[in-house]
């Protein structure tokens, strides 16, 4: 269940004041992309779809859509997912 926007904004405000990384507060998703071959998503909720050209992950901010070629889930842990392959685009779905 998504958190209310008001709570999310409050958490961000506290984080900014205390200089705490945003991804450490609550369910803020953090996406790191290195070149076009490696993508790391932290604070995800689960795998929604997994194919060779499309991987969709559920997050607190909606579904993150990663498109590309030869995609695979290199690492799948409760707090972090790593995607290997040729990443072409990363987008949030409404």
């Amino acid at each position: 269940m998504k958190k209310p926007r008001r709570m999310i904004r409050l958490g961000h405000r506290v984080g900014q004041i205390m200089d705490i990384p945003l991804e450490a507060i609550g369910d803020t998703v953090k996406i790191c992309i290195i070149a076009d071959s490696f993508a790391s998503i932290e604070n995800y909720k689960g795998v929604f779809e997994c194919t060779e050209s499309l991987i969709r992950l559920r997050t607190a901010y909606g579904i993150v859509r990663i498109e590309g070629e030869n995609l695979s889930l290199g690492e799948l842990r409760s707090e972090r997912a790593v995607i290997n392959g040729r990443v072409k685009s990363v987008a949030f779905e409404n």
């Binding site: 689960g46 997994c50 995609l71 695979s72 799948l76 409760s78």
Partner: peptide, 16 residues
């Protein structure tokens, strides 16, 4: 996959 991750299992190199 989600159930395995939630149960604390170690899984990697998942590809279709």
């Amino acid at each position: 996959l989600n159930r395995v991750v939630q149960s604390g299992g170690d899984i990697w190199h998942v590809r279709r």
